[in-house]
Nucleic acid binder design. Structure first.
Lengths: 191, 191
DNA sequence: TTATTTTTATTGAACGGTCAATTAATAAAA
DNA sequence: TTTTATTAATTGACCGTTCAATAAAAATAA
């Protein structure tokens, strides 16, 4: 029963944070959405804090799993870079309104040591995923700069799309810009 | 007395949000920092919400004023673009830890109509500031793309620096990357 | 000038509401 | 029966707001 309930509560948390924001998300708003009582959260996660952390961890592993799935049957470095962009933007469609949830969590990570650790993992993972592919296309020094710039461009386009409450079409357009930017980096630095 | 008190309370709010986060910032934490009683906030701002909004408005106008001051005695389009980057990164040094305050506010803007309006103003202002200078250096269509990409790159580098709790040197390095990126755009698209 | 009233600025206690967490009770399963 | 899963009521802390009381300043009258 435990793994089922845990998953249900995590998904209820995602819904609640997307809808109300992390600030207004309470033990009650979550348990109500999950159709359970409020006490169950302390029982399975030790408290609200534990559930929030588990939810972020779940988002993180979803992102990672999504990329691994796309690249499962091998692909070129260029192709893999495009997959990385897609994975980072895809969190949108996967679960409706998950985007603003990420933003809530990251903002909160400034004042929460545990969340900050998870944020660090996420930021570094994007960078090293990019670096791995760039290194197959250019010299190491240039690959590092390309990876840093690409990571910033992806996050920046994503952030601006989220904050302006962009629709699906605008998200696709941002995703396209990110891809074209990476291709221009390859053209510029590639051997 | 009113304008003095308002300013004092806004600055106490900035401190509190930087220190505790918007989530944990209360009427008490603010009024304590300002050395006043809690009732004064409702008296001058109608309530907590009003003070928060006034604080964001203050940050926004600070950013704008900073750019106007830098470009007061005229400069080349390239120079102006560099000033835009500097203004957007300078909010850091101006007031210690104001960066995470911005992040808190923007995250909250997803669930607050008034803040979202202010966020929109801010995003559009950066874009049109950039567009104005790019248009003097390249064709309109390319200028628009350059402005959109630059805005995303600035915000992305800034976001990653804030989230990773970068020190001053790392912020400077991010600022440099942004400037070099804009110069590469000019080289790529410039007439 | 001094005495008085009026206005302005500020306080802090009280209120109603909500929060996360706990706990005793209950229901179901083993 | 014992264990496991879940509920619902309760607790104590803290939230933002309100408001009667007060202190200080300014205006007016003597």
């Amino acid at each position: 029963m435990e793994p089922v309930r845990r998953q249900q509560l995590i998904e209820a948390t995602l819904q609640s944070v997307a809808e109300l924001g992390l600030q207004a998300t309470t033990i009650n708003s979550i348990s109500k959405k999950a159709g359970m009582s409020s006490g169950i959260i302390s029982h399975y996660f030790g408290g609200k804090q534990g559930l929030i952390e588990a939810t972020v961890r779940y988002l993180l592993s979803s992102l990672q799993r999504s990329l691994l799935h796309k690249t499962a049957q091998g692909c070129s470095p260029e192709q893999r870079l495009m997959f990385i962009v897609e994975a980072n933007f895809a969190v949108v469609q996967q679960q409706r309104d998950t985007t603003r949830t990420w933003l809530s969590f990251w903002a909160h990570s400034m004042h929460d040591a545990q969340l900050h650790r998870l944020q660090r993992v996420n930021a570094r993972r994007l960078y090293s995923n990019l670096l791995y592919s760039f290194k197959q296309l250019m010299a190491p020094g240039e690959a590092r700069e390309a990876a840093e710039l690409s990571a910033a461009m992806i996050d920046g386009l994503w952030l601006r799309a989220v904050l302006s409450k962009a629709d699906d079409a605008q998200f696709d357009s941002a995703q396209d810009l990110a891809k074209r930017y990476i291709q221009s980096l390859i053209q510029q630095f590639g051997v």
